[in-house]
Simulated assay, not measured.
Amino acid sequence: MRLLHTSDWHVGRTFHGRDLLAEQESVLGGLADLVVDERVDAVVVSGDLYDRAVPSAEAVAVCGRVLRRIADAGARIVITPGNHDSAPRLGAFAAFTPAGGLHLLTSMTDLHRPVVMADRHGPVALYGIPYLEPDPARAVFGDPELKGHSGVLGEAMRRIRADLADQPEGTRSVVLAHAFVVGGEACDSERTIAVGGVPHVPGKLFDGVDYAALGHLHGPQTLAEHLRYSGSPLAYSFSEARHRKSVWLVELDQGGLAGVERRELPVPRPLATLRGELAELLDDPAHEAVVNHFLSVELTDPARPLDAMRRLQKRFPHAVHMEWRPVGRIEAPRKYSEAVRGRDDEAVSCCFVEAVRGTEATPSERALLRSALAEVAGKERE
Score class of each variant (00 low, 15 high):
224 A>M: 03
282 L>T: 08
71 A>F: 02
28 L>Q: 11
242 R>A: 14
201 V>Q: 01
351 C>S: 12
166 D>E: 09
72 D>P: 04
381 R>F: 04
130 P>W: 06
75 A>R: 01
359 T>F: 03
212 A>N: 14
303 A>W: 01
138 R>Y: 06
61 A>S: 14
60 V>N: 11
82 G>C: 11
62 V>I: 07
353 V>N: 00
36 V>A: 04
131 Y>K: 08
35 V>A: 00
255 G>W: 12
377 A>N: 10
251 E>M: 10
246 S>H: 11
371 S>I: 04
242 R>I: 05
123 P>D: 15
259 G>I: 08
71 A>L: 02
307 D>N: 09
132 L>D: 00
70 I>P: 05
107 S>Q: 13
151 G>Y: 00
275 R>H: 07
135 D>R: 05
237 S>D: 10
95 A>E: 11
320 V>Y: 14
24 Q>Y: 04
89 R>L: 09
260 V>E: 09
161 R>F: 04
224 A>D: 10
152 V>I: 02
38 E>N: 03
261 E>T: 13
213 A>M: 11
122 G>W: 11
190 E>H: 11
289 A>Y: 14
5 H>G: 01
63 C>A: 15
12 G>Q: 03
32 A>C: 08
305 P>N: 12
95 A>C: 03
265 L>S: 07
125 A>M: 09
288 E>G: 06
184 G>V: 05
343 R>G: 05
119 D>Y: 08
381 R>Y: 03
